[in-house]
Design a protein around this nucleic acid. Sequence first.
DNA 1: CCGGGAATAGGTATTTATACGTATTGTTTG
DNA 2: CAAACAATACGTATAAATACCTATTCCCGG
Lengths: 209, 209
Amino acid sequence: MNINKPAPVVYLVDDEFSVRDSLRLLIESTGQTVSSFESAEAFLKSYDNKEPGCLLLDIRMPSMNGLELQEELLKRKISIPIIFLSGHAGIPDSAKAFRSGAVDFLEKPFDNEILLERIEEAIKKDIASRNLSNERLLIQNRLDALTLREHEVLSLVVCGYSNKEIAKMLGISNRTVEAHRARIMEKMQAESLADLIVMARHSEVLSSN
Amino acid sequence: MNINKPAPVVYLVDDEFSVRDSLRLLIESTGQTVSSFESAEAFLKSYDNKEPGCLLLDIRMPSMNGLELQEELLKRKISIPIIFLSGHAGIPDSAKAFRSGAVDFLEKPFDNEILLERIEEAIKKDIASRNLSNERLLIQNRLDALTLREHEVLSLVVCGYSNKEIAKMLGISNRTVEAHRARIMEKMQAESLADLIVMARHSEVLSSN
DNA sequence: CCGGGAATAGGTATTTATACGTATTGTTTG
DNA sequence: CAAACAATACGTATAAATACCTATTCCCGG
């Protein structure tokens, strides 16, 4: 039972070596782990989404720029929180970044303290969102193990119908419904109806974000 | 049963008459209702939060500026979606606005089509968030009508305990638990356990936003 | 001070759900 | 093709929940 709690990583993508170098120093001074890349492509190639973290991303870069990388990450459903760093960008870029979910958008030169604050904030966010999606994944896996019939029964159960009603609706016997229900509870690892309902809703309501 | 479905209102706060005038024309041409104000203060005074809508807000104004109004609205827990309009603002203002929840931040001159799109988006957002909070309010009101004891029973019920277990935990008889439970179902207007659980969770998890 | 609501408890009858165990009929798949 | 699994069904017994009564005690506000 040796759970590996992975340490957060601050990814840093900037084409200028001097920026990477000085930011690395700054951030490592707080005990954070830093992983630098000189291009969006290099980041994409090596990012493995295993550890929580955040991404410090320069806007203007040769080849793929910051906003393009953000889009690419969205496309790939990689949801690492992004803090943009810009030398000289305009409102449209900033707006684009935020509307695509950026955590912040800092103009160089920026206050180091603020950057460090935002990094912490972003990492917290990522950890929270990872926890959420891990939970969802667990539940989803269990749901996926249900048979078609069990799915039908489950949805009627969470709608509040009694076994009798469900039996009538599906045109099967009472006992069969009970059998399905028992299997569902087992497969979903639910200890009570309340449990089951919460889990079932969980996956339905993909809610906000 | 004459339900008044209130029409959305586009609030427009800008100190320049010419801007108010031309935007009003533009927006009204799509059939939207517009309500203009020449200052943040004037808006605050007359805004009543009855209708859904959105707020087109100039950044730079004499006296209270756009960002200050946004903060004031946050303080007052008024959550109307804001689209900022700026003549010459910088990234810091834009970032501040977005981090405080702005829907968009457009630089003048902006593309009319984009503005209209964002207005629609913002209104949809407001309607959705109003629906959500109305639901929550309804449920909260019902929860508030529960007695202390009923609250205790409810939380044990949603944790999945049976009446028997609950009775033991609270040191009362089985019947009494059942009586409470029946009252709870009645007061919460729940038609089934599933219903009840969903409602109870609803208020617990104040979730995202 | 009295009425009403909260909290408690009992009784009885009915309905539901759960927990055992067994069995048949299809599909699917190694 | 045989084994595995899904979907179906029955029986019996127990446990739990629901419905519908009544009743006592305590405390609060009009």
